[in-house]
């Protein structure tokens, strides 16, 4: 991949990362808008998904009865197995209209003074993409959090209960002890969100721009590759797209390695 992108690396150098231009006609390529779209949508997804995932993991491992646990965790596993194209399809026809008619007007009326929630409501856009991503990464973070919680010795929690702690206080302590593993799960989910292609491409609006509003359409690294690669006209455009892919690969590789090391560090002790 490095070899295939050498044309664009030679021509644009570091500017590739900092330039907002993406103009196949004039053969000027810069990836900043895509990097921005990827970062914002993934982190927003993580922000939405992390508390929910921890809640589910705690619910599954500490609160609910065993019979419910197996069927519930099975359902969540299936959530992870649904192809992303179906999430995207559902996003276009169900979530986006719902966002346009219900959620976005609500957000605008309550938080309208913030720049994030201003502007026209299209339904598709950064926020919608983030919500779809959040749904997709929740099963991953939940599964890891559960495994990590399982690795925390039961005796610690029992000691806390023996001292008169409430259930939540015991859980909180376990969560604190498991924090580096949970962080690993979160980073793993982030890596998945960064690389997710189809669902995002279908709901993010695909417009190369950087705007403060989360209602605005944006573009991510993965979706620009998906949309333009097959129809790329010149060798330079292909080369630039491959460089975008190379950046994507580098980022996800680093993110995933970090996540794995964090998770290993917790589960290996058990």
């Amino acid at each position: 991949m490095f070899l295939d992108s050498s044309d664009s690396i030679e021509k644009f150098g570091l500017d590739f990362i900092f330039s907002r231009n993406w103009d196949p006609v004039r053969e000027e390529f810069g990836a900043l808008t895509f990097i921005y779209g990827t970062i914002v949508s993934s982190f927003l997804a993580l922000l939405i998904s992390l508390p929910i995932s921890i809640g589910v993991a705690v619910f599954l491992s500490e609160i609910v009865h065993k019979s419910v646990r197996t069927s519930l965790s099975f359902l969540i596993e299936i959530l992870a197995a649904i192809p992303s194209i179906i999430y995207g399809f559902w996003g276009i026809f169900v979530l986006a209209p719902f966002m346009r008619t219900t959620i976005q007007p609500f957000l605008q009326s309550v938080f309208g003074f913030l720049p994030f929630f201003q502007g026209t409501m299209y339904g598709t856009g950064l926020l919608t993409a983030s919500i779809i991503l959040a749904i997709m990464i929740t099963p991953i973070i939940t599964a890891i959090t559960r495994d990590v919680l399982k690795a925390i010795p039961v005796s610690q929690k029992e000691a806390a209960y023996a001292l008169g702690a409430t259930k939540w206080e015991g859980i909180k302590m376990a969560l604190l002890n498991a924090r580096s593993g949970i962080l690993g799960g979160a980073v793993l989910g982030l890596g998945r969100a960064i690389g997710e292609t189809m669902a995002v491409t279908m709901v993010i609006g695909n417009k190369a721009q950087i705007k403060a509003s989360l209602f605005e359409p944006a573009y991510t690294m993965a979706s620009v590759i998906a949309n333009e690669f097959a129809e790329a006209s010149g060798g330079l455009q292909v080369s630039s797209l491959i460089e975008v892919g190379l950046i994507l690969f580098g980022v996800t590789f680093i993110v995933n390695s970090m996540a794995r090391l964090l998770i290993y560090s917790v589960t290996r002790k058990a």
């Binding site: 508390p51 929910i52 995932s53 921890i54 809640g55 589910v56 705690v58 619910f59 599954l60 609160i63 519930l72 359902l75 969540i76 299936i78 959530l79 649904i82 179906i86 999430y87 559902w90 169900v94 749904i135 929740t138 099963p139 939940t142 409430t166 259930k167 939540w168 206080e169 859980i171 909180k172």
Partner: peptide, 25 residues
């Protein structure tokens, strides 16, 4: 005790939130 029930309630809510999209889809 209030914090305890609140947090456990939130855990239940998040589980429901996670399952809803699956059923809906």
């Amino acid at each position: 005790k209030f914090v305890n029930s609140l947090m456990i309630f939130l855990c239940v809510v998040s589980s429901v939130l996670t399952i809803l999209p699956l059923l809906y889809i």
